[in-house]
Each structure stands twice: as C-alpha cells, then as structure tokens.
Computed example of a mutant assay.
Amino acid sequence: MKSIVIAMVVALVAALMGTKANAQQPTAAVTAGPNWCTDAPASPPPPGFELRPGDWANVRKMCAAHMYDRGCVGLCAFAEELWRRKKAAN
C-alpha cells in the first residue's frame, strides 16, 4: 500500500516539475483551491495515505493549485478509495 502512495506522489511531483518555463500557465479560474477532492476530508488524512505526518496536507495544497493534473486526479481517487475501504470495514 505504501509503495503505491510513494509511486503516485513521485509521479505527481515529476509531472508538476516537468512543465516547461515557456509553457502556458493556467489562469486563476482553473485553481479552485478548496474544491479539490471534496469527497475526501482535509482532516484527518485518508487511512494509510501518509508515510510522514503532513503528506496529505501537502498533497492537498499542491493539488489545489493543479486540480486538473492527472496525478492529482489519481491521488484524489486513491484517497477516496481509502476512505471507502475504511467505511466498508466498519
């Protein structure tokens, strides 16, 4: 499970850092901030998501500015799945 999280975070960071300096930057209208991944609560973090305390908060902050990035969409889906599994186990 943790290896999946690591791979997703590495892919996300690589995707976000891979943008070219002369590439068109998104406008402020695209960055909806707190609307990223609304089905997964900001706190507490999804069960089993964090390798280190604060990982979920950092991902939320980064993806709030890049919410339509494929990596962020994948991280949101993963967080939602972790919450679904937690609820199903209860």
Rank of each mutant, 00 (worst) to 15 (best):
D69R: 00
M67I: 05
F78D: 02
V30A: 11
A11Q: 02
C72E: 01
P47F: 09
D55F: 08
A79I: 02
M62S: 11
P47G: 06
V59A: 10
A40C: 07
A23W: 13
W83M: 06
P45A: 13
Q24N: 10
L12D: 02
A15R: 02
A29N: 13
P34S: 13
G71N: 03
M8F: 04
W83K: 07
A89Q: 06
W83Y: 10
R84S: 07
A29E: 15
E50A: 14
C72Y: 02
K86P: 00
A14S: 11
Y68K: 10
P26K: 12
V73Y: 00
S43G: 03
V13P: 03
C76Q: 05
L16V: 11
V9P: 01
A21S: 12
L12Q: 01
P46N: 06
G18P: 06
A32V: 14
G48I: 11
F78C: 05
C37L: 04
W56Q: 03
C63P: 06
N58H: 12
Q25Y: 13
G54F: 13
V73H: 05
G18H: 10
A40E: 00
A57D: 09
V13R: 02
G18L: 10
F49T: 08
N90E: 14
N58M: 12
A79H: 01
V10L: 05
A29Q: 15
V73C: 03
T38V: 12
A79K: 02
A40K: 05
P41I: 03
E50H: 09
A15I: 03
P26W: 09
A11V: 02
L82S: 06
G71M: 01
A89V: 02
K61L: 09
L12I: 01
A21I: 15
C76D: 01
D69E: 12
R52F: 13
K20H: 14
E81I: 06
A65E: 07
W56F: 04
D69W: 03
D69M: 00
R84I: 04
A21F: 13
P26V: 14
E50G: 08
C76H: 04
A89D: 06
T27L: 14
